[in-house]
C-alpha cells in the first residue's frame, strides 16, 4: 500500500470526488426538508425543490403584477451593472496606480503609505459616508465596491510590477526606451495577466460589498431582493437567488480566466500556435 501522500486520483475519480460532497449536501437538504414538511406542510424554513421552481418561474418568467417587470432579470441586470462598473473601475485604478507605484520610486514614496492606510479602513465603516456624499443612487454602491477592492488591486499590482526583473528594465533602457515606452511596451503587457488574476481574487469581496450596499439602500438588485423577502421568510426565493449569485460569480471568474489564457498565451506557456508555423504548434501542443 502506497503512502497516502502519494495516492493520486484518476481523472474520473477526481470529478466523482468533486461532485460527491455536492450530491450529499443536496441529498441531506432534501431529506431534512421532506421530514420537516411531513410534520408541518406550512414550514417555510426548508422549502421543497418544487417551491424553488415555482418561485423562480413567478419571478423570472411572469411579469410582476404591480410593475409589469420581470423581477429576477431586473435584479440580475441591476446587480451585474453595479459590480461590472465597480470592478472595471477598480481594475483601471489598480492598473494606473499599481504601475506608477511599482515602477517609479518617487511615486511609490509619495503614495504607498496612503494606499496602505486606506486599505486598512474597513469599507463598510465608511458606507454611511458614501451614502451621505454620493446619495442613495447607483454611484454610492459602485463607489463602495471601488473603495473596497481597489486598494487591494493597487497593492497587489505594485508588488507584481516590482517583481519584474531588473534585467528586463535595464535591457529596455539599452534598447533606447524612455520611461513611458517602458510602461507601454514592457510593464503594461507584463502585468495585464496579473491584473486579471488580482481582479479574479477580488471578485468575492466585490460581491460582498455589492450585496451589502444593496441590502441597505436600493430598489432593485439581487441583494436588495434577498433582504426584502427575508421579512416574509421566503426561503423559496432566497436560496435560488444565492445559488444564482454563486453561479454568476463562478461564470465571471471562469470568463476572466479564459479571457486571460486567450489574450496572454505566453503567460500560461501556450505557444503562438495561431499565427506561427506548424513547428511551433507542435511545441505548443507539447507544452499545453
Amino acid at each position: 500500500m502506497k503512502r497516502m501522500v502519494n495516492l493520486q486520483p484518476s481523472r474520473a475519480a477526481r470529478i466523482g470526488l468533486g461532485l460527491l460532497p455536492l450530491v450529499l449536501l443536496v441529498l441531506a437538504y432534501w431529506l431534512a426538508s421532506d421530514a420537516r414538511l411531513a410534520e408541518n406542510p406550512n414550514d417555510k424554513l426548508m422549502p421543497a425543490f418544487g417551491s424553488f421552481i415555482d418561485a423562480i418561474e413567478r419571478l423570472a418568467f411572469e411579469p410582476n403584477k404591480r410593475s409589469g417587470e420581470y423581477l429576477f432579470w431586473n435584479d440580475t441586470a441591476a446587480s451585474l451593472k453595479r459590480i461590472g462598473l465597480g470592478v472595471g473601475l477598480s481594475a483601471l485604478i489598480g492598473l494606473v496606480f499599481g504601475i506608477a507605484c511599482g515602477l517609479l520610486p518617487l511615486v511609490r514614496a509619495g503614495l504607498s503609505p496612503l494606499v496602505t492606510i486606506i486599505s486598512l479602513i474597513p469599507p463598510m465603516a465608511i458606507l454611511p459616508i458614501l451614502f451621505i456624499v454620493f446619495g442613495l443612487g447607483e454611484l454610492s454602491k459602485v463607489m463602495l465596491i471601488v473603495i473596497g477592492i481597489s486598494p487591494f488591486i493597487i497593492r497587489d499590482l505594485q508588488g507584481r510590477v516590482m517583481e519584474i526583473s531588473q534585467e528586463i528594465l535595464i535591457k529596455a533602457q539599452t534598447l533606447g526606451a524612455n520611461t513611458w515606452q517602458i510602461v507601454v511596451r514592457v510593464v503594461l503587457p507584463q502585468v495585464l495577466p496579473r491584473l486579471l488574476d488580482a481582479v479574479r481574487l477580488s471578485l468575492g469581496s466585490a460581491w460582498l460589498f455589492l450585496i451589502a450596499a444593496e441590502a441597505i439602500a436600493a430598489t432593485e438588485g439581487l441583494g436588495y431582493r434577498i433582504f426584502l423577502v427575508r421579512r416574509y421568510m421566503s426561503m423559496d426565493i432566497i436560496l435560488p437567488y444565492v445559488a444564482w449569485i454563486a453561479l454568476l460569480a463562478f461564470a465571471m471568474d471562469w470568463s476572466l480566466k479564459t479571457l486571460s489564457r486567450w489574450l496572454f498565451p505566453w503567460y500560461f506557456g501556450i505557444g503562438a500556435s495561431d499565427k506561427a508555423s506548424t513547428e511551433s504548434t507542435k511545441v505548443a501542443e507539447r507544452t499545453a
Binding site: 534585467e167 535595464i170 539599452t174
Partner: peptide
C-alpha cells in the same frame, strides 16, 4: 549614470521579453 542604447547588454538569464515573440 543610466543605461543607454550605445551600450548593449546580455545577461546570463532574463534578458528577453517573455511577452513578445
Amino acid at each position: 549614470d543610466e543605461p543607454g542604447p550605445d551600450r548593449g547588454i546580455v545577461f546570463q538569464r532574463y534578458s528577453v521579453f517573455s511577452h513578445l515573440s
